[in-house]
């Protein structure tokens, strides 16, 4: 498997997109830290951008890469290797390279300008979101053979998680505002990895992001070791669920 990942990585690194992505994140992060004034403010702006762009780039890059690697997978499938190995190598290759790009592009500026627990949470969240959205990308790619359709599905997924989901939930919360919704909201947050990541960073940010009784309640949940552990466990589930279902489809499909 390691060798396969090596070749996948090699293929991706040769592709200039990943370098462009790194530079893009790097410029963005440094720019935001300079504009933001305080490191916390920089982190907050960065969080917003990270949660918007990282899923988008991950899912689009993941999908196009999958379709572009069809030949590679075809070549490998006729060799004595397990299909799931090929699939996982592709997956790890893509998510690792995107994570490294993220780690350099955002991690280095964060370490320089705003080192600390919150920065670490931002990085972890970004890396998890990368893994999750590459998994979703692969799921979109194995569902259909048509590249245009696959990218369409991927974009829809991104649109759903980045925008529509929150709108729907806010609408539901508004409609059922008379009921106690603390726990329900917690669950609804966990059902969207982007929201989960955002909340995880916000609640550990030492600015007045979360407030009042409810804010304090959530902070007590997400601020505790257990809360953080559970949140990351849910993130892991968010990686595994789409990844394993995509693998299932991939193992049964014709190449």
């Amino acid at each position: 498997m390691n060798k396969l990942i090596k070749y996948v990585l090699y293929d991706i690194v040769r592709n200039k997109i990943i370098v462009a992505y790194t530079l893009f994140l790097l410029l963005l992060s440094i720019g935001l830290f300079h504009l933001g004034g305080s490191p916390d403010k920089g982190l907050l702006s960065l969080l917003n951008l990270v949660l918007l762009t990282v899923p988008l780039i991950s899912i689009v890059f993941g999908t196009t890469h999958f379709y572009n690697s069809y030949e590679f997978m075809e070549l490998l499938v006729s060799q004595p290797i397990k299909r799931s190995k090929i699939f996982l190598s592709e997956y790890l290759g893509v998510s690792l390279s995107l994570s490294v790009a993220f780690g350099i592009g955002v991690g280095v500026p964060v370490l320089l300008f705003a080192p600390g627990a919150t920065g670490l949470f931002l990085l972890l969240t970004g890396i998890f979101v990368t893994f999750i959205f590459v998994a979703l990308a692969f799921l979109a790619s194995v569902i259909t053979r048509d590249k245009a359709k696959g990218i369409g599905i991927a974009l829809l997924l991104w649109f759903y998680f980045a925008l529509i989901y929150d709108g729907l939930v806010l609408f539901v919360l508004y409609s059922f505002g008379d009921y106690p919704l603390e726990k329900a909201t917690l669950v609804l947050t966990a059902l969207n990895p982007v929201d989960l990541g955002r909340v995880l960073v916000l609640l550990n940010l030492d600015v007045s992001a979360m407030m009042g009784y409810t804010g304090a309640l959530y902070k007590s949940i997400f601020g505790s070791g257990w809360g953080i552990a559970i949140a990351f466990a849910v993130m892991v589930l968010w990686v595994l669920l789409p990844l394993l279902s995509a693998r299932r489809v991939f193992q049964k499909r014709d190449l």
């Binding site: 529509i164 929150d166 806010l170 609804l188 909340v199 992001a209 409810t214």
Partner: peptide
């Protein structure tokens, strides 16, 4: 105003949707 009416919606603070709204 939404947060005032439904406190749990603080969870969506800084969500892209909220900014858009």
């Amino acid at each position: 105003m939404l947060v005032e009416r439904v406190p749990p919606s603080v969870m969506f603070m800084r969500s892209f949707m909220v900014d858009l709204m």
